[in-house]
Simulated scan of single mutants.
Amino acid sequence: MSKDQDSIAVILESLLFRMDEKTAMILKCLDMLTEDELWVRPNEASNSAGNLILHLCGNITQYAISALGRKEDIRERDLEFSTRGGYSKQQLTNKFSKVLKEAREVILSRTREEWLSEYKVQGFVLSGIGIAVHVVEHYAYHTGQLAFWTKQLKEVDLGFYSGTNLNTKNDE
């Protein structure tokens, strides 16, 4: 493996670690919500947990699976936000898991050249690495929204880092 390939592998390992971390957080939130709470919106300018899952599925599909994986772009973005139900928690979880699995397969199968190539996605031109960074930062952003909304609905600490001393100093 060349130095460039090693560098890309390190980047991808870090990005996939963060996706896995956020996936666990999202699944914990979904597990805590009832079927009815899944589609509750804080207000009309905000999205329900169900909408956020549909939106993440759409975004990951468009960026990672379609653009990076060079498949047809079938995303219907407006539906991700206008949907007011129609999916059970299990159906949403299954859809979400399927999208994540397919995206992971695409990410793990790209070549060095594909990571450095440019892709047009959602009107932007990004490198393969740029797409992966976008997917992870977008994923983390909406994970925070899901966590905040779950805390609001349930009035509990989600305990994402239970058992980890987050006060440990860097040199310890």
Rank of each mutant, 00 (worst) to 15 (best):
E102P: 09
K89P: 07
E21A: 13
A140C: 12
K71A: 04
S46A: 15
V99P: 02
Y139P: 02
L166K: 11
I65H: 06
L15V: 02
L146H: 05
R104H: 11
E118R: 09
S109P: 08
Y139G: 03
F17R: 13
Y141T: 12
F124D: 05
A64E: 07
V125G: 02
E105V: 12
L166A: 12
E118L: 12
D157M: 10
D31P: 03
K3I: 15
A45Y: 08
F96V: 08
R77M: 03
H138A: 00
F148T: 15
E72P: 10
E118G: 09
I131T: 03
H142F: 05
R41Q: 14
M25Y: 15
I74G: 08
H55T: 01
A67Q: 06
K89L: 02
V133N: 04
M32K: 15
V125W: 01
Y63W: 14
Q145G: 04
K22C: 13
V10H: 13
Q5K: 15
Y87Q: 03
G69F: 05
G159L: 03
Q90N: 13
K95C: 06
E80D: 05
S109R: 10
C29R: 02
W39D: 01
K71Y: 05
K120M: 13
E105M: 12
M32G: 14
K154Y: 02
K151H: 08
S48K: 02
L146I: 13
L15S: 03
T61P: 03
N170T: 11
L108T: 09
W149Y: 12
G130S: 06
E76P: 00
H142I: 02
L166C: 11
E118T: 14
H138L: 00
S46P: 04
E118Q: 13
A140F: 06
L38D: 03
N167K: 15
F17L: 12
D171M: 11
V133Y: 02
N167S: 14
V106I: 14
D6A: 15
R75Q: 06
Y139N: 12
N47H: 09
S48N: 00
L153C: 07
Y87L: 07
T34I: 06
I129E: 00
L153N: 08
R18W: 05
E137T: 10
L12G: 06
F96N: 02
T111F: 05
K71T: 09
D171L: 13
E76Q: 14
L56K: 04
R75F: 03
E37F: 04
V136D: 00
C29A: 05
Y119C: 06
L153M: 12
Q122I: 10
T61I: 04
L79W: 10
A132K: 05
V136Y: 00
H142V: 01
G50K: 00
V156T: 10
N170Y: 15
D4R: 15
I11A: 13
N43K: 08
R41D: 07
S88W: 10
D78L: 10
K154G: 03
L30V: 06
D73V: 04
E21Q: 13
N165E: 07
A147N: 08
